[in-house]
Design a protein around this nucleic acid. Sequence first.
DNA 1: TTGGGTGCAAAGGCTTTGCATGTGA
DNA 2: TCACATGCAAAGCCTTTGCACCCAA
Lengths: 157, 157
Amino acid sequence: MPEKQDRFKTLLKQNGLKVTTQRIDILEALESRPDKHLTAEEIYECVKEKNPDIGLATVYRTIQLLAELNLIDKLNLGDGFVRYEINNQGCDVTAHHHHHLICLNCGNVLTFQGDLLETLEQKIQEALEFEVVDHEVKLFGYCKACRLEMQEKKNKE
Amino acid sequence: MPEKQDRFKTLLKQNGLKVTTQRIDILEALESRPDKHLTAEEIYECVKEKNPDIGLATVYRTIQLLAELNLIDKLNLGDGFVRYEINNQGCDVTAHHHHHLICLNCGNVLTFQGDLLETLEQKIQEALEFEVVDHEVKLFGYCKACRLEMQEKKNKE
DNA sequence: TTGGGTGCAAAGGCTTTGCATGTGA
DNA sequence: TCACATGCAAAGCCTTTGCACCCAA
């Protein structure tokens, strides 16, 4: 995917960073993985397949850098691991993040877009005089597949 | 506050735990602190004032235990520290947590109650067939005091 | 009395840092 | 060329664990 590579190169250059294979590889790893919620270790493993010489320290340094530039988002799903995902909005600081649905049974993470919190934020702004500029929402529950599975188990009993 | 102590003793006993001075002290520390979002280290320091012999390991073991029993809530405000707060709902698992307003300037944390997310959850349930049983909401922005401060600074310029 | 609880110190796991070497602009 | 980036290993930090002693029930 050369066009993706070009996009990454441009993003790096725009932010005054050198374009190195390691940085491209890490961005590609984050872009390519289907679940897209990788830990530092997972990114490391993923990149090593292609570039076995990369060091774990480079992964940590790079994700920190990319997170500061808002090219990637830090994520804490409550399982004790810090995770990262590509921020496709790029550097638009005003864009609200998408939200996460975390299945308590299988641990899968769904995402959804939408600013359905706007009325909530408005109310808070009025009631507490607290100016909301960003939010993070995690919803815990059971995904469709797990609900079906649980239903079947129940029926067998 | 002997009546609080009694409440804590009852809570511990109800959950099959021995009542020790350390456990009471830790619950009291969490109850008494005004901001109520303490790290393990802060709990340790707080309890040590009263009971200098307590060990940090006991604090970690106790908060883990109390969190499992839903007597306290684990909190991650995104500053890299795991924090804990008393869960006043007690053991009512169905009760939704309150939400947190985190000031990006001073770092203070306000809380607010209310289930204004219910319509949101309903929509998700319908659209994605994901059954939401709990949620965690963090709102980032600027508190009243900091907004005033920033306003004054602006006016001086 | 006795099994759970505690304190201490050591061990673990994740992340950061120092330093010499490598490399993109 | 040369400042920035990397790899490696060591160091840091927070948290957990092993073990002997202690104490609430």
